[in-house]
Simulated scan of single mutants.
Amino acid sequence: MEEAAFRKIVPVFPVRDVPASLRFYVETLGFTLGGRTGDEFASVFRGEVAEVNIYLRRSEQVAPAECFVYVADPDALHAAYAGRGVPVVEPPRDTDWGYRQFTIADPDGHRLHLFRFLD
């Protein structure tokens, strides 16, 4: 059924400062800048054919959001991010729902849960 052929979701994070958020995502987390409209909007991505995208839109009011992002090796990524001073909210752990995951926060408090499925 073609209607069920979902492939991707792109969150839009409201941020107070697009340039500051870009520095965090690009320089600290290793994303690539996809596009930018001044200081109002930007797109960042990682992976082949932009497998992971996040849109950053300037807003005066920021309510932190969350998203889950599949990664091949959460423990190795956690070690790399911890070495760069990325704010780790939850260290790597196995969850009751079958994930190995850890959680980081961006400058506006948005949380990325970086996970893989348990074997």
Rank of each mutant, 00 (worst) to 15 (best):
G34P: 10
I104D: 05
S43V: 12
T28M: 12
R116D: 00
L29R: 08
R57E: 15
V86H: 10
F24K: 05
V71I: 15
D119M: 00
Q61I: 11
G47C: 06
V71K: 04
A5R: 15
V12L: 14
G30Q: 05
R100C: 08
L112W: 04
F24V: 04
V88G: 06
F41S: 08
L56R: 06
F31A: 11
H113W: 09
H110K: 09
R111S: 04
P87A: 11
A72I: 00
G38H: 11
I104R: 08
P64L: 07
D73G: 09
V15K: 07
A65R: 14
V18D: 09
S59T: 01
L22H: 07
F13Y: 15
E51H: 12
V44T: 02
T32I: 00
L29N: 05
A20S: 14
D73Y: 03
F45N: 04
H78Q: 03
F117W: 12
P74V: 01
E48G: 08
A79K: 14
E27W: 06
I104Q: 07
A5Y: 12
W97I: 03
H113Y: 14
I54N: 04
S59L: 08
F13C: 03
R93E: 08
L33W: 02
A65L: 15
E27R: 13
F45M: 02
Q101I: 01
P87I: 02
D119G: 14
L118F: 03
P107V: 03
E27A: 14
F24T: 04
A20W: 01
A82K: 10
S21M: 11
F45T: 01
K8W: 08
G47A: 06
P87E: 10
R58D: 01
A63L: 15
A50K: 12
R36V: 05
Y99Q: 15
P92E: 00
D94E: 14
A63G: 11
V12M: 13
G38L: 05
L29W: 07
A79V: 07
A65I: 02
I9C: 09
V86F: 06
A79N: 06
E48A: 13
C67E: 02
L114A: 06
P107D: 06
Y25L: 03
A105E: 13
L112P: 06
F117A: 10
P11D: 07
A50F: 06
T95G: 05
L29V: 03
F6T: 09
G109E: 08
F31P: 02
R46W: 09
R116H: 07
E51M: 04
L114E: 02
T32W: 01
I104T: 02
G109S: 08
V86E: 11
Y81F: 15
R23W: 01
T32M: 10
G47D: 03
A72D: 13
